[in-house]
Simulated assay, not measured.
Amino acid sequence: MAQLGFDFGVEPKRLTKVTPARLATFDDCPRRYRMTYLDRPPPQRTGPWAHSTLGAVVHNALRALFDLPAGRRTPARAAALVGEQWNDSGFLDERQAARYRERAKQWVSDYVERSDVAVEPVGLERWVSAPVSTDEGPPSLIVEGRADRIDERGGELVIIDYKTGKREPDEYEARGSQALAMYAVAAARTLRRPCHRVELHHLPTGAVASAEHTEDSLRRQLTRAGETAAELQVATDTLTAHGNADELFPARTGRRCSWCDLRPSCAEGQQAAPAARSWDLLAP
């Protein structure tokens, strides 16, 4: 007699855990993915990058700001938090670092001035995770990641991502961001509220690029994620079975090799492009 609800002859499908960072790294360069997540001991990396330091300081200052009571979230306090979080890693010298420190203070001060910072976020640097299906079948992925900020407006969640780079983002970037879409799906499942709106807040210009996802557009992003996840999982499993690392995870070279963290450990990357200076990607 058949067992109700059980099928002991079918092995449960393994769920692949993915984060936006892992998927983006594999899409960008499989070799970089392998060296970042699989190689042990970890290969040699470059030193710190000034643009990464700047971004981390701004993110940390804004998180600390929203941890304060609403009445203390002032422009002056936001600027002071930048000073408290600051470090000079990756900058040319103290003079350049000081110039960008003052610039970052102005960015966050202006952001607080023009934004409704009295709102209480649902999450700050919130880790969200959820099993999802990329088709009509059972779950095949666990999508997860850390969202900069999650707000609630009108009963729905909003994913907010801070940007400090050179280029001002637009609606197409917000809509096309696989990371934001994955956060939206995982947040909706984790926090049990609908989530369709995603926003990129560009601190240097004050621009807010937003997009409203539909269930179809979120599904398309999950399908893309599933395809990349399947490819990287096959490569990883084959490597574990003593496959050829260079063939399974080939270097995908280009201009980005100039500022790759793993450039010191990648001969192909060194040949593909000259080394960038650690401050070259700072917003002008």
Rank of each mutant, 00 (worst) to 15 (best):
R193I: 03
E94Q: 07
V119M: 03
W107L: 08
M182N: 01
R40F: 07
T240D: 04
S140V: 07
Y183S: 06
A187C: 15
L282C: 08
L68E: 04
D39Y: 04
T53Q: 09
P12M: 09
G71E: 12
P264H: 13
E173T: 12
V208I: 11
H213Q: 09
D261V: 14
F66Y: 15
R77P: 09
A104F: 08
E144N: 00
A104E: 14
T205V: 15
F91S: 05
Y33V: 01
D261L: 15
L281C: 10
L4T: 10
F6S: 00
Q106I: 06
G155N: 03
L191R: 10
E171H: 01
K17Q: 10
L141I: 02
D110C: 09
G206C: 01
L15F: 15
P69R: 02
T240K: 13
A174L: 12
L92R: 14
T164H: 12
D246S: 03
E11M: 05
G123L: 03
D27K: 03
A78N: 00
C195W: 11
D280I: 05
T223R: 13
Q96V: 13
W86E: 03
L239C: 04
Y162R: 07
D93T: 13
R34Y: 15
F8E: 03
P121I: 12
T16F: 03
A251V: 09
R255L: 10
A283N: 14
T36Y: 01
V208W: 05
T253R: 09
L141K: 06
G145H: 05
G243N: 13
Q44K: 08
E120A: 08
Y183Q: 09
T223N: 07
A2Y: 05
H213N: 00
F8H: 02
D148G: 08
L4C: 06
R149Y: 10
N244A: 09
K105N: 05
E231C: 04
W107P: 06
P264M: 12
R167A: 07
Y33I: 03
E212K: 13
A174D: 07
P194H: 11
E113T: 14
W49P: 09
T253V: 13
S129L: 10
A64W: 06
A80S: 04
W49R: 11
K163H: 14
G154N: 09
V185S: 06
G71R: 14
K163Q: 12
Y183P: 07
